[in-house]
Design a protein around this nucleic acid. Structure first.
Lengths: 303, 303
DNA sequence: CGGCTTCCATGAAGGCTGCTCATGGAACGG
DNA sequence: CCGTTCCATGAGCAGCCTTCATGGAAGCCG
């Protein structure tokens, strides 16, 4: 049989994480030799080299990274099998266990606290862990695909409701809400359009690009920053204006005025991303249920 | 360890399907005793009764049905792990074709040879072509944007990790390392600060300008040359001194002494530039992987 | 350039685990 | 009451995983 045993999965994950047979072995409380034998066994079973051995430890090959990503997912499902089976035996709907969530900053700050509060109120045994991941590169969906999280909050393609990330097959996405962009500008500034536009890296622009095209003005200049909170600070200090989604604007400090962008503002769609297998687990289903019950953020009343 | 092994999962699924230990055993090609032992082992690990045994076989309890459902998912994922891992290995093994790379001179001379050697060692089918492009004007990023190369080595903005070039939209940049500048001066010269500063066109100064501002001396004169190797030659012949990045100084001829610029030297950030579409191709991904494994250059010991 | 250190690989030996075989107990039907 | 058909149980054996003890290769450093 070519299946990998749980202890082998654990070893793959540890080596992938520690980039070293020796470090993985001590982390797992066993000898380096055991790790070496186990990795070799995995490679024999799979017929592929999983790690490049060298002077500086072990680097995963593409095949190894792929295997480790699956291994993380499988190990979580094995743990879920145990907890959910025990729960079913006790006839109790009590959910327990860790639930790793990744989200971009504004969702983590304004969307998830309430959701997680309600979730843990109903299921005190759940241990949600929220991690902030910037929505660039493979973004939150990549974290889910790599088995680093059970569910990710991501920006989705508005039309298809799928993750727009480049080819992450096998992921399951669902739409939560579509929110408008709005203009954030300093309170009381007479001519906000003359200020430089502040954009931030994650706001890859694809959502607002169409809107810009239909406008008859272009900003005087553009400044790029890394973080949306920095953007808001710059705006609050009168150093610029910005086009930001409603969720981010919920955290706008005083000094930032918000103005809608008319009847057809640009929008972005926010949703969740998980795997089909995880979508069948009780914990993830409950989390999605809570997420769905959240209303779409609207523009805060202009200060 | 409470995890269920793959063979145990298979047994659970078979018993759940066949409603009988005996039938499951024959279906799996093993003895009824083995199934009995295995099921008992699962029940012990999970702490729950999974099947009701009776005269007419084995009926799954709710817990057993739950466990079997998860077991099917996990077995499917284990199979997926194997096939996708093999596919990933296959894909990287079959990498072939040309791979056009542009880089500024010092990266081409000191960074890429080792990288390309390792890359072609692992993927003999790849044919990397390295072209040197001066980092002025649109630089290497422009070559990538124009489709003349798959990947460029470029100097990036230290803060954002993006290409500092004037708005080449749609390009994907990634940071590789940040290296310090250092003072290159003739060996044995008593007063290097009295020599003229040799600057070269590519060293547009933006990286070192802040540092100069904090200094209490300014060079006697400034000479501009086209090429960093010319700069080094001038220094070696005692005709000047220069501030150059570590990567360039790796090629310093004898006669050039290198001195660090203190605890907070100016630095420049070197990275790669490609397009999102190319970043998805296996060849470019592998190249980036090799690039990332290169340590940041440090100052060669002063001769 | 040679020792030192730090990686991983390898082979032999021991213990654990899972399998089979043989047998026993329980329930049902004739 | 007997036969049949389930599953349970215990002993023995084979295979696997781990450890121990080495060895080889590759930097690091004087």
């Amino acid at each position: 049989m070519t299946d990998l045993a749980p202890h082998e999965l654990r070893i793959l994950v540890a080596v992938d994480r520690d980039r070293s047979f020796t470090a993985a072995a001590t982390a797992l409380g066993m000898s380096q030799s055991a790790v070496s034998h186990a990795v070799r066994g995995c490679e024999r079973k799979l017929g592929a080299v999983l790690f490049e051995r060298g002077r500086h430890g072990a680097r995963p090959t593409p095949a190894g990274a792929q295997a480790a990503a699956h291994a993380r997912q499988i190990l979580h499902l094995l743990a879920t099998l145990a907890t959910e089976t025990r729960a079913a035996a006790q006839q109790t709907a009590e959910l327990t266990g860790p639930l790793r969530i990744v989200a971009f900053r504004s969702a983590a700050a304004h969307l998830l606290p309430g959701v997680l509060a309600r979730l843990t109120a109903r299921h005190p045994g759940l241990e949600p862990e929220l991690r902030i991941v910037r929505e660039i590169g493979r973004g939150t969906a990549g974290e889910v695909a790599d088995g680093h999280a059970e569910l990710g909050i991501a920006t989705l393609d508005a039309a298809t409701g799928q993750s727009p990330s480049p080819s992450l097959p096998g992921l399951l996405a669902g739409r939560l809400f579509t929110e408008p962009y709005a203009l954030a500008h300093p309170v009381g500034h007479p001519l906000p359009r003359t200020l430089p536009l502040v954009d931030w890296d994650e706001n890859c622009g694809s959502y607002t690009r169409d809107w810009w095209r239909s406008q008859d003005w272009i900003p005087a200049a553009t400044v790029n920053v890394e973080d949306d909170t920095v953007t808001l600070s710059l705006v609050a200090q009168g150093l610029g204006m910005s086009i930001m989604p409603a969720l981010t604007l919920l955290g706008a400090p005083p000094g930032v005025a918000v103005t809608g962008l008319g009847p057809q503002p640009p929008t972005r769609t926010v949703g969740y991303v998980t795997t089909p297998a995880l979508a069948r687990t009780a914990a993830v289903r409950e989390l999605i249920r809570e997420l769905r019950s959240v209303p779409a953020p609207t523009l805060a009343p202009s200060v």
